[in-house]
Write a protein that binds this DNA or RNA. Sequence first.
DNA 1: ATCCTCCCCTAC
DNA 2: TAAGGTAGGGGAGGAT
Length: 960
Amino acid sequence: MDKPGPSKPKLEPPDCLPSTSKITDADREFWDNLVEFVSDEEEITLDRLLEDSDFSGNEQDVEDRDVELQLHNFAAPEIVVDSIEEQEAPPETVNDALSRLLNEFKRAPISEAEGPPAKKASIGRIFDEGNADADPIRVPENRLVRAKVGTATEKAPDPHDIAAAQTFGGYMALKKAKLRHQVNGEEPHDGLTSNIFSGISVFVNGYTEPPALIIRELMTVHGGEYHCYYEHGRTTYVIASSLASVKVDKLRQGEIFIKPEWITDSIARGYALPHIDYVVNEKDRYAKGTLQRFFAQSKEDKEKPKNPAPNRDTVDARDPDFIFQYYARSRLHLISTLAQDMKDFVADLKSRRSPESETIDLRDLGRFVTSERRPKEDFIFHVDLDCFFVSVALRSRPECRGKPVAITHSKGVVSNSMSEIASCSYEARACGVKNGMLVKDALEQCSRLVFLPYQFEDYTEVSKIIYTILSRYTLDLRAVSCDEMYLNCTELCRKFSITDPKKLAEHMRTEIREKTGCPASVGIGPTSLIARLATRRAKPDGVYWVPKLNIADFIAKEKIRDIPGIGYQSLDKIKSFFGDTERCSELQAHSLETLEPLLGKKVAQKLYNQCRGIEEDPPGFWEIQQRKSVSCDINYGIRFTEQKEAMQLLSGIGFELERKLNRCKMLAGNVTLKLLVRSADAPVQTAKFMGHGRCDAHTKSAVLPMSTNNAKLIITEIVKLYNKIAPLVEDLRGVGVQCSKLKSADRQAMSSAVAEMFKPTSQRKPLQLAGRPKKDEERKRKRHFYGEDGDEDMLMRMEDFNRPHKTSPPLKNRHICEHEGMRNRLEPPRSNQPLAPPAWMPKCTKDIAFGSQSSLNGVTDDEGIEAEFEKILIEEPTRESVVLVARFFCTTARLGNLQSLTNHSRTLLSLVGHRRTSHAAWFQAAHLILNEADAVCAEYYGAPMMLVDSLEHLNFGRYD
DNA sequence: ATCCTCCCCTAC
DNA sequence: TAAGGTAGGGGAGGAT
Ligand SMILES: Nc1ccn([C@H]2C[C@H](O)[C@@H](COP(=O)(O)OP(=O)(O)OP(=O)(O)O)O2)c(=O)n1
Ligand SMILES: [Mg+2]
C-alpha cells in the first residue's frame, strides 16, 4: 500500500470530484423546450423572448422525436419520463435553431500563448495522499446555526407566483406535482414489502438466476411491474443473464439489458440502484468487472483483427470503450463537463439576447420609492445549491432527510473503502465529514453515515433548470459550475426598485426549490468576493447579505482558507511563515512585501486586497470568456503491460479531443502530454483500487505542424511526445493531453484547419468528406453518448473508433481525385489524355506504400530533397520514380509536415514547369502525385489542401 | 522585455 | 474494490 508520502503532503486533500455526461441532442431539445416553457410563464415578455432567441416554434421533425425518446430512457426514471410525456401533449414546439445556435456561440477568436516560461530540471511529483484529512478548513461547522433570512418565512406569496402557477406550462406543473409526491414519500400498499421499484418494469429474457418466476415475485412485492412481453417504450429494463441469445448491437434503441443481480442488489440496498453497472454487454463473455474486462480484453485482444495494411504506424485498435466506461462513472468528469456546458449556455444567451430585454417581471418585489436616495451599491449575487448531489438524492429518499448522508460509488458495505465522497449532507458535515473525503475516513468520523449512489442524469437536469431559471433574471451572469453562479443584479434591482436584495434572492430560491426540489443558498455583496463568502454564511438554505458598509467587519472574521484562490498549499505557506493564522484580520497585519515572496506577486497582491475586502472584480468578469484550452485526462484504471495498450489509450484520447475541439469549433496549435508514472519507491499495488498512487508527472509539449482539430494529427504528435518521455509501460498510471493555442475553426465548411493556410483560390467547396451518408440505428444510439449535436462527421468518426479500424488507406481508389472543377489550365485538356495510361502510371495507388519518414532516397533535409527532385525529374518518369516521389509526398502529408508539404509542392510544380528542369511527362505525373497527396490530406485532416490549386496564382505551367 | 516550456495551485 | 476531470491563473528560468 502506498502511504501518503511521509514527506510533506504535497497534494491537496482532494476536494474535487466529477461525474460524467455530455449534453446530447436529446438534452438540448429538452433544454430548449424547457426554456420555452419557462418563458411561457411570463406572458409579458414572451414575445420578446421568442424573438430574441429565435424561438420559432418549429415543427418537431421525425428525428426530434427519436431524440426525445432517447431522453426518455436516458433520463432519470421518474421525473423526466413524466415530463416528456407531458411535453408531447402540448404544442411542444422544438426549435433546432436554438440547438444549432447553442453550438455556434462557442466560436470566437482566441489564443495567444499562455504558458509561463522556463523548464525545470525536475519532474512534478504526484503524491498519493489519504484524502481529505489534510484539509481542516472546509469544515461545515455550525454554519447550520448561522443567521439566515428564513426560507419558508417570507416565501413569495406574491400573486406573481400564483399567476405563474396558473399559466405555467404543463411541464413544470407536472414536475412540481411529481416532486411533491416524491418528497412526501409513498407508503407501500398492502401486500408490498416496499415500493423501491415503483415505476419500474422488467421483462425477463431467457434463463436467469434467479429464474423469472422469482423475479416476477420480487418485482411485484417491491412495487415494480413484471411484463410477460417486452413493450417498447413501456418496459424499463430487460433482465438477462447472458447474451447467449441477445445481440447487443441489435438492440433497439432504448432497450436496456441488465443483469438480474440488479434486482437482488437493489432489494438488499433498499432502493433501486443505478443500472449502469449491471448492463449486460458483449464483454460479459470475458470477465466480470468493467475495468478488469477492459484489461483482460486488451491482453487477449484477438477480436480486433489487426489490419496490417498500409499505414502501419497508426494504432488501429482504438477502443473507445474504456474512456466511455470510465467517463460514465466519473463524477469529476461530469461536473467539469457540466460546468463547461453551462458556460456555453450562458455565452449563447448573451450573444443572442439583447441586454435590455429582461425576461422576468418582478414588479411585485419592488417598492414605490419616492426618491432614490439610497447610495448606489452593487448587488452581486452568488447562488450555490446546498450539497448538490445529496439534495438531488434526497428528493426521492425523504426518509434520509435529517441523517448524515454521503454520495459515493461505495455501497457502504465495507468500512475500509477508498471510494471518495462527492458530496455529503450538512448533518454529515457536522460530524466532520467533508466533500472529497474517502469513505473509510468519513466512517471514522461518522459511523452512521448513510451512502447513496450517484444520479448523473439528474444532476444534469437540475443544473440546466437552475441556469434556465436564473438566466431569466439577468444575463449579467457568470457560470462557475454546475451548481453555482454569480449574478449581477444591480440593474435588475434598480429597474424594479428593489431595495432589499434579500427579497429578490428569496424569489430565486423559491423558484429553484419549486422547480428542482433542491435548496439553494444565496450570498449577496458589492463584489463577487463578498458575495461568495456570504454564501457560506447563508448555507444551508438561506440568504446572507453583506452591505457595502459592513464589509470590513465581515471580512475580518472570515477564514483565510475560505478566500477563493487560497488552497491548502497557500495556507500552509502562510501558516508556516506567520505561525498559526486563521482569520483575515490576522493577515491584515502583514505587509504586501512579506506576502509576495511567499505566494508570488499576483497571488500576494490579490490576497492582500481580498483579506481587506477591497478586491474588485477583474475587468471582463461578466463578459463571455474565451476558452484557452481543451484537455482530456485519464488518471484512473491505467495498468498496461504492452506498449500497444498505451497507444490505444493515446488514440482514444486523441479522438476524444477531436470531439471536444469540434464541439467548441476550435483548432489546437499546441499539444501537451502529461504522463503519471509510478514513483520509483511507490508500491506497485496502489492503496486505491486502480488508482494512480504516488506518481511522478512528466510533461512534454509540441507545436503542431498547423492548427488542427484532427485526431490523427494530434495522435501522431502525442505518440512522439510519449516516446520522448518513454516511460515503462507497466509503471504508467495516468495520461493527460491538453490542447492549447486555440484558434477558431470558423472556416464554415471546413472540418479541419487544413485550408487555413490557403485562401482557396476557387470558390469550390474543398470539403468532400464532411457530409457523408446518413444515419442508421446504430448511429442514433451513439449520438446518445457522444452527444455531438448534428455533427455527422463526428459521429462517423466515433463509429470508426469502434470498428477494427480498417486502416483505410488514404490512397485507396482515390485515383486522381476527380473533383470536378479541380481542373484548370494546368491540367492537360481531357481530350489530350492518352487513351492508354502512360507507362509511368502506377498500376494502383496502393503501390505507393507509405514510408515511415518523409525522405527521398534516404535524404531528409530540404536542400537534399530538392537536389533529389532535380535529379529525378530530369529523367523520363518511370513507374518506380513516380512511386518514389508520390510516396515522399504522401508520407509527408500523412506525417503532418504540412508546411514542408507545401514547400515541396511548390518546388515540384516549379521544376515540372520548365523543359530545362524536367522531362515533359513529369508535368502530368506531378499533378497526379500532388492530387494523391491531397487525397491523403483530405483523408487525414478532413479537407484537401488544394496543393495544385493553391499554387495556381504562381502561374506555373508548361509553356514549352 | 517577452516568449516558451514545464511545472504548481486552485476550484467545482 | 473504484471510476483521482478539467480549466484557468500564475511562476521560474531559459531562449530569443
Ligand atoms: N471534491 C468534490 C467537490 C464537489 N463535488 C461535486 C459534488 C457537489 O455536490 C458538487 C458541488 O460542489 P460544492 O462545492 O458546491 O459542494 P456541495 O454543493 O456539495 O455543498 P455546498 O455547496 O452546500 O457546500 O460538486 C465533487 O464531486 N467532489
Ligand atoms: Mg453547492
